[in-house]
Amino acid sequence: MNLVPFRSPVALSDAGIWALQFAALPRDIAGLAKGLQGLLIHEHMPNLYGITLSDRQRSEPHVRSAWEILERIAVQDARPLTQPRAPGERFAGCCRHYALLLVAILRSKGVAARARCGFGAYFTKGRFVDHWVTEYFDAAQGRWVLVDAQIDARQRALFGIDFDTLDVPREKFLVAGDAWRLCRDGGADPQAFGVLDMAGLWFIASNVIRDVAALNNREMLPWDVWGGMALVDSEIDPDFIDRLARLTHEPDGHLEELRAVYEDPRIAVPSTVFNAVLRRPEAVSPSGLSA
């Protein structure tokens, strides 16, 4: 198994000079997840922590790179990352920000890690919600482990989660390609996969593209749109998404093919993407596009 592509911070997971602070962080997954929970707050859950997001925080979910996330954390509070911030002082992001920072930290410590885009089955009963987690290689067990660093004690209680979120069962989080295969085989209703009022095969297909990009070290925002992403089912190339789903199911067996398919303009992240939340094109920072 070739773990080299996932051992070093690159592009969006490269924290730059801010990575110097990672040395003081714990090496264990539980400690790292708890540390991130003291630095970040989910943009859609401020009420859970008794706060209202500030103007600064409301702009933060659109930050793409690890180095800029950490820079903003430092500007707001210059204390070491080992010191938790009060909820009202944390960086406001989404699931993808937790996943990206954990990838950045683990890679800085020489642990193979990657962000995975897919759907969580543990937020709303009967639905698979658009979600990102971190996957890291546990050398002692010889396997990849899914970690949801976002879930703290309050969220565990809110969502009634009864499993270990530091080792998420594969049936609780479906990488996007597995969700696509499940729906294509008639094992699930595509309308159960999405977020808010957006769901369906088109949504799943777009997340398959995002997952392929993430496996090529381009961990984009969940609402970044580019290339072959469709807004309706009729615009999907199902055979193409079938191929991507097969590759992402066992990425370690298809690394060269994943690298090759990333050259396809339907997959490759361009210099400018469309931010579907802010409804505008945005330039992706040079660090986000570097090899």
Score class of each variant (00 low, 15 high):
A192M: 07
I29V: 05
R64D: 10
V277E: 05
T52E: 15
G31S: 08
F159C: 07
L106S: 02
P87R: 14
P222K: 00
P238F: 08
D152M: 04
I267P: 02
G187F: 10
S271N: 08
D264C: 12
G118Q: 05
I236R: 02
T134Q: 04
A283R: 13
T165Q: 06
A230S: 12
I69T: 09
N2T: 12
F173C: 13
Y98E: 10
I41N: 01
K125L: 13
D162R: 14
I267Q: 01
S287C: 12
D237E: 13
A205S: 07
K172G: 07
F137H: 07
A205L: 05
A23Q: 12
S59L: 15
G93V: 03
D152R: 01
H44P: 04
D252M: 11
I236N: 03
I29W: 03
D14M: 10
D162E: 13
G177E: 01
S54A: 11
R279F: 09
G186W: 11
G194I: 00
I69C: 06
R58I: 13
I267F: 02
G50Q: 08
D130G: 06
W18V: 01
A78F: 12
R279W: 11
I161E: 04
L146M: 14
P238T: 15
M229P: 01
E263C: 07
D167V: 05
N216P: 06
C95Y: 02
E71N: 15
W132R: 02
C117T: 08
P190C: 07
R72I: 10
G228Q: 00
S206G: 11
V284E: 02
C117A: 14
A30E: 06
V147H: 03
L101M: 06
D14I: 10
Q37M: 10
T165L: 06
R27N: 15
A121S: 14
A205W: 03
W132A: 01
L158A: 11
T272I: 12
L221F: 00
P26T: 08
R143K: 15
D14F: 05
D77I: 04
D264H: 15
P9L: 15
H249K: 09
L289M: 13
H44E: 13
P281D: 08
S108K: 03
A213I: 00
L101R: 00
D164M: 10
G200P: 00
V75F: 10
G142C: 14
P80Q: 05
V168K: 04
G194F: 02
N47W: 08
M45S: 07
R181K: 14
P270R: 04
